[in-house]
Design a protein around this nucleic acid. Sequence first.
DNA 1: ACGCGGCGTGTTACCGTTATCACAGATTTG
DNA 2: CAAATCTGTGATAACGGTAACACGCCGCGT
Lengths: 355, 355
Amino acid sequence: MPAKNAVRTERRKGVAVTIHEVARHAGVSPMTVSRVMNSNSNVREETRELVMRAVRELNYTPNAAARSLAAAQGTRIALIYTNPSAAYLSELLVGALAGAARTAAQLVLDTWDHMSHAAERVAARKIAQSVAGVILPPPLCESKVVLSELSAAGIPVVAIASGRFQADLSSVRIDDFRASQEMTEHLISMGHARIAFIRGHPNQTASTLRYDGYHAAMTAAGLAIDPALVQQGYFTYRSGLEATEKLLTRKSPPTAIFASNDDMAAAAVSVAHRRGLDVPRDLSVVGFDDTPTATTVWPELTTVRQPIAAMAGSAIELLLRSIRLRKDGEARVVSDHVMAHVLIKRDSVAAPRKA
Amino acid sequence: MPAKNAVRTERRKGVAVTIHEVARHAGVSPMTVSRVMNSNSNVREETRELVMRAVRELNYTPNAAARSLAAAQGTRIALIYTNPSAAYLSELLVGALAGAARTAAQLVLDTWDHMSHAAERVAARKIAQSVAGVILPPPLCESKVVLSELSAAGIPVVAIASGRFQADLSSVRIDDFRASQEMTEHLISMGHARIAFIRGHPNQTASTLRYDGYHAAMTAAGLAIDPALVQQGYFTYRSGLEATEKLLTRKSPPTAIFASNDDMAAAAVSVAHRRGLDVPRDLSVVGFDDTPTATTVWPELTTVRQPIAAMAGSAIELLLRSIRLRKDGEARVVSDHVMAHVLIKRDSVAAPRKA
DNA sequence: ACGCGGCGTGTTACCGTTATCACAGATTTG
DNA sequence: CAAATCTGTGATAACGGTAACACGCCGCGT
């Protein structure tokens, strides 16, 4: 056995800055740098500054693989969805992915389309033992079966766009009621009085809230709501088609249609066109969500912007925080993030034909 | 086995089977298991069998994080896109994400909308030093500026759905020409002769190929192509609207419209409806790609299924292989993966009104 | 004074896998 | 027939982080 350590096999790769270099640069131990990066615990303000400066100067980015390996936090988190509209899904994914990259979490995707309750229960149990947390967009975040199974397994869950705040479930959402109310007020301020409403899928709280917002605004303005002008929809283009058809065949049709999401609003525009109506001259149409659909159709839709991508990102951060906390033995914390929505005015609204 | 592991700070997490357990089970060293898993080099057939059995019995899955950490493959890869349709994007992302998870690559997303060539060059240079490989969907995969910058930096690139095979660029795609030809033949076999075509964006090779396929099928069937029945489109809903409008205002309108993608086909359906035409009774409409849009509109579109998600997954695997090879000092290899397409028949096609 | 409990930080020991080299036995070579 | 080469496998040291614990130092109660 000759002297062996003289060799020092060169296995280093590229240019990647490691935590050790940062540590040396800042004159502290790697562990301290780690603590700063995770804004975890007690580090003196002075030291933190020192480290942060080094981080900035070296342009250091933690290595995700190493981090998740060492942390063994089981940083796998699942995002489970069921047949959302494509437009919605793509935004959701972009946001979630960005969030996962930022936090070094490993994101796993799963689709649970057309599942029975029993199947959902099984799937939930299975997912529970392979990930450390779950993100649930609607309508899954309202499924008692899934929720109870997941919470029985003790893994944190964050709901996205769930509408209401549930006491035992963290959520990231917008204020659907207010948003809907504002949209309705906008329509009223343009001179509309016969405003029809196409409801969303009844299994989602947000649907109810959006209707409530519409109702509140109408009532506040002293406008009666003709029950025939409220149609049930299911958030799908198809359902929007049918609802609009019913609305426009009435003897005294509405001058404006407020659909609970963009897909249904797009369908409303399509039906209006088919019937020879001009949008917005003969009929105003507004949607909700501001998915890409809103700017795809012509005319572009006035809608409420729901920042889905940002919400997904927040959801991931929230989830990771919960996971860490839970590991620390803390009681589970639930929090409720309400993000800002924006009323986006485009070309699908005008004053009614003749007031 | 008393002593030794009495202390053994309990840091172990879940149930994950490690390479060591497999090794012990098979009676070999972990290194040998690793070799088998990577189907790398010299392992006796007998030993390999032994290991594989153990792997199967224990249901072992390599830990992605550890693998990429140890391999130091610099597994960050970028997926860069510019304003694709939402439907397209969501499929792309789902596939890429799944692929990245499977291979332990870290996927980073980037949008390069509305960039000048100069800006693209800068962006390319920047991305080149932060990732080990890039995946490029159209139209970016046809941008000389980007391509040359990236190849100058020496990082592997894989193009998705690029249409043609470029000698210096690996790609994953379908046979656009054949697919388009088959679709056209389908229309012809239904009895259509006046078949209009809406072209895709001229900056994409796939557009040309799809047109060529249509042209070839028409010619082969002895059908003349009325130049007025070929309209330029840009893959957007809006452009489909305009193209269809022109098509249907002609004195002798087509009995079928073949749009180069689903978004434009959806637009065609919308215009037809607006003009009081029934689809498919008065006019057949077909699309291309089989994005969610195809099943959103009514009637659902006959289209060509392009397996975008699977293609994205393959692209990632291809890319990683290139990265590994390149690291081994191999000359760069380019390969061309042509995946299968499928003609999906739905409800937007019927025989023409009166032959 | 003495011990006790925090606080801020460094040390050590891993996380699960692979690169590299060592090495015994089989095979070829001079 | 010994030396050189090849083959298959094992031992060891990373890869870049973080958990758990150790260790001074300080203020505090008794």
